[in-house]
């Protein structure tokens, strides 16, 4: 029997207060009229207005979005391929090296990943810009996608694929018609993870970007280095809001689909 003792209630309250109060303060002070960030001088949406006028931030946001969509999409394709190869590919030459290269970027310090990619791009004479950031982001996020997808591939019943093959479909058809629909939720969450990682990344983007391409985290970092600014508070509030809506929607959708699946199973049992 689970019950909520006063100790557990206190630790949960304090824990979540610690996690959420800093972000709440950030949001509240983004509506502060004063330029002095920590002194309250009445409610105002002034900083949101100024943010929308700020060309530098808007263009950085646009670059970030382009990089995130491109890199997460390529990473999802490559990561799913890599997961399929690792789980279903059987033995091949250099398999250990391959799985090592999938797991190593997950624990590699960002400064090292960034430095090594930059040295490669300089070595082959590739101009740094949007393309190099996309290449860099794809490389580390494909490994995250591959881990998410392979955990789904491990848990599903392989005989379903075999049945499709026995019934005369080609391996590619079996993948498209049987495997892909089953692993689709993992592929989608892999894409979302890759997308967020790319939106969030400061260190690797700083190493691999050039003067022609500035992403939002680079822009935010260079302006908060000088101190707290109300415009950044407004920007942070918008970003927090987007993430919250995204996470809530995703969790509602997955809850509904699991409820629907349970209902279907019950209906199937009754029939």
């Amino acid at each position: 029997m689970r019950r909520l003792t006063w100790f557990n209630a206190t630790s949960l309250t304090l824990g979540f207060a610690f996690l959420y109060i800093p972000m709440l303060i950030l949001i509240i002070f983004s509506f502060n009229a004063s330029k002095l960030v920590m002194v309250w001088a009445g409610f105002s949406t002034r900083w949101y207005g100024e943010l929308l006028q700020n060309e530098a931030f808007l263009s950085a946001a646009w670059t970030t979005l382009k990089v995130a969509v491109a890199s997460s999409t390529i990473a999802t394709v490559l990561g799913t391929m890599a997961a399929y190869v690792l789980i279903r590919g059987g033995r091949f030459w250099g398999r250990t090296l391959f799985s090592g290269m999938i797991y190593a970027p997950l624990v590699m310090p960002e400064v090292i990943t960034g430095l090594s990619l930059l040295l490669l791009f300089i070595g082959i004479g590739l101009d740094r810009g949007v393309l190099t950031i996309v290449l860099a982001h794809t490389t580390f996020s494909m490994c995250f996608v591959s881990v998410v997808v392979s955990s789904r591939l491990v848990s599903f019943d392989r005989s379903l694929e075999e049945a499709a093959l026995d019934l005369g479909s080609t391996p590619f058809e079996a993948f498209r018609l049987v495997t892909l629909p089953i692993i689709a939720p993992a592929v989608i969450s892999g894409w979302l993870l890759a997308f967020t990682l790319s939106l969030d990344d400061l260190v690797i983007a700083s190493f691999t970007s050039g003067p022609s391409a500035t992403t939002l985290p680079i822009k935010i970092f260079s302006s908060i280095r000088l101190g707290v600014s109300p415009e950044i508070n407004a920007l942070s509030t918008i970003l927090i809001l987007i993430v919250t809506i995204g996470v809530l929607t995703a969790s509602l959708v997955s809850k509904r689909s699991s409820l629907k699946m349970q209902a279907d199973e019950r209906a199937a049992v009754r029939n």
């Binding site: 979540f16 996690l19 959420y20 800093p22 972000m23 303060i25 950030l26 002070f29 960030v37 920590m38 967020t196 939106l199 969030d200 400061l202 985290p217 935010i220 970092f221 908060i224 101190g227 707290v228 950044i232 508070n233 942070s236 970003l239 927090i240 993430v243 919250t244 995204g246 996470v247 809530l248 969790s251």
Partner: peptide, 20 residues
């Protein structure tokens, strides 16, 4: 959900929140 939400929120913003 309450534990995962900060995980999806920008790292930079969460560090920045403490600066103020």
């Amino acid at each position: 959900l309450l534990v995962i939400l900060p995980f999806w929120t920008s790292f930079l913003i969460r560090v920045y929140a403490w600066m103020g």
